[in-house]
Amino acid sequence: MIRLTGITKQYATKGGMREILKGIDLTIKPGDHVGILGRNGAGKSTLVRVIGGAEPPSSGTVERSMSVSWPLAFTGGFHSRLTGIDNLRFICRIYGVNFDERLAFVKDFSELGSYLYEPVGVYSSGMRARLAFAISMTIDFDCYLIDEVMAVGDDSFRERCKVELFEKRKEKAMLIVSHSHRYLKGTCNRFLLFRDGAITEYEDFEEVYAEYKLLLEEPQKF
């Protein structure tokens, strides 16, 4: 279970303090698949970071009794001078898991072949995404954070990601940020709509999507 109580988050900007999250209360239970919708800059990714613990909230509490993943297929932690293997080894070290078993899986799933022994700096963005997704799948979490991930890779790779994530791990909790209609509809059973730093929960996808469409028609203001 993950419980957020009264989460707020402010950032200092030139125009003064900006409040991105204005008192969020949210409980995620094991097996929940939560889809998050909202405009650019609404605070979706900030919320993901707070839930993942990458960033502390300005006020409020986060209680976690489930292990929470880093944002899936996230490539930022890679060092461009390190090889794919080195980056995998780093992840294995900090999570304290056996490297050799993981290596076999990453080789097989990423299909990067000898590129795994090259510095990540020479990878194409698609190859990075493959590596990142494969590495994400090597650690077993109770809750996966998924931030706009499936846009990467070619169709066959995307299909395999889907199987790996939504079929093999469908009993896990998931938090999915996406703008994709198709993607959210089939996978989530709870929907959150971001609006002015607050969230409204919907159970029905068509309902939330209609609201989201309305929201998009309003002029964007930052």
Binding site: I94, Y95, G96, D108, I139
Partner: peptide, 21 residues
């Protein structure tokens, strides 16, 4: 290859172990 058994994940562990790692 299927994903290896994942029960060796020591995400918790004592905090000093985690930090040293």
């Amino acid at each position: 290859a299927s994903n290896p058994s994942l029960n060796d994940t020591k995400l918790g562990g004592s905090s000093i172990n985690v930090q040293v790692r």
